[in-house]
Structure formats: C-alpha cells, structure tokens
C-alpha cells in the first residue's frame, strides 16, 4: 500500500564555481536520497539546522528548483518529468506553499484581492468567482474582507501578511500545504494566532501539512510525524511523540537537549555538541554527523549509514544504534536526555 504523499530518493546537487571550461568545480550536496511519506490529514514536521536541506526539499517538491532525481507521488499518481507522470503544474494544484518571508512572497504591486484571486483565475475561474473566493478566504483567515481586499502588502503587519499568504495558498483548494518556516518570522503572540488558525484550517479543509521549521517545540506541537535532517540527509524519522521522548539518533538527542530551559533551576550546564554544522560543500565522509558525534567509532567515518527500521514506525540512520546499518557489534547508546519539562 502506498501512502497519500510519497517522496522517494529526492536528490539535488548545486554546482558552484566554474573552471575555464565552464564546468563546475564543486557541488553542494544540498539534498541527498531523501525519502518520506505521509497520510492524508496528517502533519509531517521537518526539522534541522540551517543548511540541512529542509527548505531545498520543499522547493524540490514544488519544482521551484528541479530535482536531479526523485519520485513524488500523491495517491499513487506520479508527477514530474518522465513517462507515466503528470506535469508539475498538475501537482501544484494539489500542493501549495507558504514561505517564511511574508513580504517577499507577495507581489508588492498587487492588491490583496488580486494576489489571492490570481490562482483561481489562471485555473479558469471567472473574475466574479475568483473575487468571491478571495473574500471568503480572507474571512476564513481572520481578516475582514471589506477592510483588507483593496490594500497592498506594505500596508499590512507581518502577521496579517502571513494570513494573506495562507489564504492565497488555499485559493485553488490544494490537498497539501507546505509551510516553510511560515511562523518563524512572527512575534510569539502573533505566532500563536497563526498556529491556531492553521490547526482550524487543517480540520476544516482536510489538509495535509508539511511543516518545516527549526523550532523543535513548535514542530512537536503541530506534527504527527517528524523527520530530522542533517547536512542534506534524513537521520531519523518517526512519530513525533516517540521521537521526542526517546530520540534514537545522537543528533536528534543533541538538538533536543540544546533547547533552552523553561525554569532557571533547569539551566543547562554543558552544550550537547561542540562546533558548528560543517559546510555542505565538502561534507564529512561516511556518517555526516560523525565528527561531532560523541559516540562515533572509526567505521562511522567509512560507511554511510542507511535508514533502518527500529519498530513503531521509526527509522534511524546510525551505525552505533542499529545493527542493520552494517555494524555487528552494537552497544546501546546512552541517549542524552531531552530537555526537562515542567
């Protein structure tokens, strides 16, 4: 049985620098062999630090930059270039995206109504239908249509603009919405409004969310399942609650234990990891996390660990954790406790 949204073997290398023949001298391995699946009506969270490829993954799904490799299917129907696949424009009717920068992602010279009505119009709706749709959606995202419909993006606050972006994403009745750091730039009080709104809209329109964020607490709160990315690869995936309570990959454990405390008595006394994430231009060999990993053994630098099933719908790519990753003599990992909670 295939999942509602299935992504297999997604890959993107960005060439950088050119030699005198015009050939690239280096490549950034932005996304490498990323696969995941989610069911209709669920929220899949994607977390990771900057440069881990989470936003690139989103852009590849929408074909905003074309993937080098990979297969995307919705309800068993494949999209993209190739035999038996529907064109990407058909995919975009089913999948829409909300970006982090609410201002840059709206056309500054279109009114709010024109921005929201644009999608329906190019998909065949009449001006009147598109306009009605825009008003309905503005109302649904909590903005008074009479007040906002003729305004321009610069006249709105960040929170209001992000509501407009959400309305625009919903204007062609998509089934999947990619939220790429959609609440990250908002102040906390406004972020809470938008998160509540997203939960309401999801229930009302039976949406499936891909929720991309660096904020682990928010991802845990909104997601059913989570994938953790590090330097372009998935290191762990599984149901959110299980992963947060017993992280399987040392990197997941470190991320969770790097969260600031919620009470002064729980202040951190040591950092779980040293150094910065390495440069994705020349990622470490073998397991890309091994230079920062407290449990690394020589083989971690040699062999790339593959995602292995650890039961309960969970997968982890770690030699020290899973015998199936090719290391016979496995010892149990002392997981770093996740951030204490009140």
């Amino acid at each position: 049985m295939t999942a509602f949204l299935q992504v297999e073997g997604l890959q993107k290398y960005f060439p950088i620098g050119k030699n005198f023949l015009g050939r690239p001298t280096q490549v950034v391995k932005a996304v490498e062999d990323v696969s995941f699946a989610t069911e209709r009506g669920k929220t899949l969270g994607i977390v990771g630090e900057s440069g881990c490829g989470k936003s690139t993954t989103a852009r590849l799904l929408m074909d905003l930059s074309p993937p080098d490799q990979g297969r995307i299917t919705i309800d068993g129907q494949a999209y993209g270039k190739g035999a038996g696949r529907k064109p990407i424009t058909a995919l975009r009717k089913r999948m829409q995206m909300v970006f982090q920068d609410s201002y840059a992602s709206l056309n500054a010279r279109l009114t709010i109504e024109e921005s929201i009505a644009f999608g329906p119009k190019i998909n065949g709706a009449s001006d009147r239908e598109a306009s009605t749709k825009a008003r309905d959606l503005l109302d649904r995202v909590g903005l008074d249509p009479d007040n906002f419909i003729r305004r321009y993006p610069h006249e709105l606050s960040g929170g209001q603009r992000q509501r407009v972006n959400i309305a625009r994403a919903l204007a062609i009745d998509p089934e999947i919405v990619i939220l790429d750091e959609a609440v990250s730039a908002l102040d906390k009080s406004v972020q809470a409004q938008v998160l509540n709104l997203l939960a309401d809209l999801k229930a009302e329109f039976d949406l499936t969310y891909l929720f991309i964020s660096h904020d682990l607490n928010v991802v845990q709160y909104v997601s059913d399942d989570v994938i953790v990315m590090y330097l372009g690869q998935v290191v762990e995936s599984g149901p959110a609650q299980a992963m947060y309570s017993t992280p399987a990959h040392p990197y997941t454990a470190a991320l969770l234990s790097a969260l600031p405390a919620l009470h002064p008595k729980d202040r951190k006394t040591r950092a779980p990891l040293e150094g910065d994430p390495p440069n994705p231009i020349s990622p470490p060999s073998g397991c890309r996390f091994h230079p920062r990993c407290p449990f690394a053994e020589p083989m971690c630098a040699e062999t790339v660990p593959l995602l292995a099933d650890i039961g309960g719908g969970r997968h982890v790519a770690c030699h020290m954790r899973v015998p199936g990753s090719g290391y016979p003599d496995v010892r149990p990992i002392v997981t770093v406790a996740p951030s204490p909670t009140a």
Partner: peptide, 9 residues
C-alpha cells in the same frame, strides 16, 4: 542554530 546557540549562551 540551536546546537550553537546553547554553546554561546
């Protein structure tokens, strides 16, 4: 990033 933030704090 989160893992670097805690180091600096």
């Amino acid at each position: 990033d989160a893992t670097v933030q805690i180091q600096v704090l």
